[in-house]
Amino acid sequence: MASFPPVTMTTEGLNMIAKASSGNTEDRLIITKVKLGDGVSEGNIRDYTDVISSKKEVSLSEWEDRGDGRFRYTFIYNNEGVKTGFYHREIGLFAKNGDSGTEKLIAYSNAGSYPGYIDDETKEIPYQRLMINIGVGDTDNVSGQVDVSNAVTIEMLNEHDADENAHSNLIKRLFGSASATMESVKTSVQSWCKESIASVFGIAEATTDNVKNKILEYAQEQINSWIETLGIRYNIAQNGYICLGKLFGDAIIQWGTDRLILSSGTDNRYRKTVNLNISISKVYSLLAIDGDNVNSSASLNVWTDNKTVQVHNVDNKSGGPDMFYWFALTK
């Protein structure tokens, strides 16, 4: 464990304390953080404006007004974020005058030949407690004591966990809330979720209807893409077709209406080569129904050579042209 001498106030620190003694709110002294470093101190500490070799910054955990111008500032830290282990020699205390002030080094201590060692973050260490006690009297007679404790005790953790306001400032900052209540956090989380959902779905506002419509739109796009990939197509019309796609052996169901016409041959027969609605490689089955007698197909014959379909009437002497319905199972 490092052994640190009392902190020495810097010239800038003394000036800031003197300014704070005005009593004005905008001049009040606000302790903000400490810097830990491994630099070797040389020269006049009063002239320091920063630690020599900064290795880690630690925010203020809590402070206590002990009365009679004495204040205790506590910093809790471990080795998270430390990429390379270092000898802990330096402690630099930083503060500012007022909320809008600039952070400056106000006090410094160096362990010299009695440093501690802080491992890199791959070797987890217990939480460390650093307390700096500063007594503020006349600005020329400001003193401070440093106490580095090697770990946070169970009692300290239990006390910390039991404190409902232990992380109120952190919660306020994280959730952008003026108070750290359950309701304010819940409201902030709900607002964040709505913003995230709106961003993900590319909608102006995450209302139920907007989200529902976007999901339906997405689902329809996916279904259309799936149908197209499988080769499923259709045209539901008087002369139409349904391509059943890969799941059904690329079968095609086609249908339509047509009319027989008198052939140019010598048999004086009415016939017609059917114009299929979609190109095919093979005909498996064909049905033709007389349009004048939809309950019977006895007066019509069909013929196919696997790629074309012909329909003709059985009775050469029948008149025409006659309308007929046709259905084909093809590929």
Rank of each mutant, 00 (worst) to 15 (best):
D292I: 11
G291I: 03
S279D: 03
I278S: 01
S296Q: 05
N295R: 04
S296C: 06
S299M: 09
R271A: 06
S279R: 04
L286M: 12
R259W: 12
N268S: 05
D258Q: 13
N293V: 09
K272F: 05
V283H: 08
Y270T: 08
T273G: 00
L262Q: 14
K272V: 12
V294A: 07
D292A: 13
L286Q: 04
N275Y: 01
I289S: 01
S296Y: 01
G291T: 03
D267L: 14
N268R: 04
K272Y: 07
D290S: 13
R269S: 07
V283F: 07
S279A: 10
T257P: 01
G291A: 02
S299F: 02
A298R: 12
Y284L: 12
A298H: 06
I280L: 07
Y270F: 15
S263Y: 06
L287F: 00
N293I: 07
V274H: 09
V274M: 06
Y284H: 14
Q254H: 13
G265A: 12
V283S: 08
V302R: 04
W255E: 07
L260P: 07
N295A: 06
S296F: 02
D292T: 13
V302M: 07
Y270K: 10
S297H: 08
A288W: 01
N295H: 03
A298P: 01
W255N: 10
I289H: 01
S279K: 08
L287A: 02
D267E: 13
S263F: 04
R269E: 06
D258Y: 10
N301R: 15
S264M: 03
T257C: 10
G265V: 10
S285V: 04
N293S: 10
S299Q: 09
L276P: 03
S263M: 11
L287Q: 02
S297L: 04
S299I: 12
R271T: 14
D290P: 02
I280E: 02
I261A: 13
L286I: 15
S264Q: 11
N295C: 02
T273Q: 10
S263L: 11
N301F: 11
L287T: 09
N268E: 01
S297G: 09
W255V: 13
A288N: 07
S264N: 13
T257V: 15
S297I: 09
N295K: 09
L262T: 10
K282F: 02
A298Y: 11
K282R: 10
V283M: 11
S299C: 05
N268L: 00
R271W: 00
V274I: 15
S297Y: 07
A288T: 09
N301Y: 12
N268P: 00
G265M: 05
A288P: 04
T273H: 03
D267F: 08
T273A: 05
K282S: 03
S263G: 15
I278M: 04
W255I: 12
D258F: 12
S279I: 01
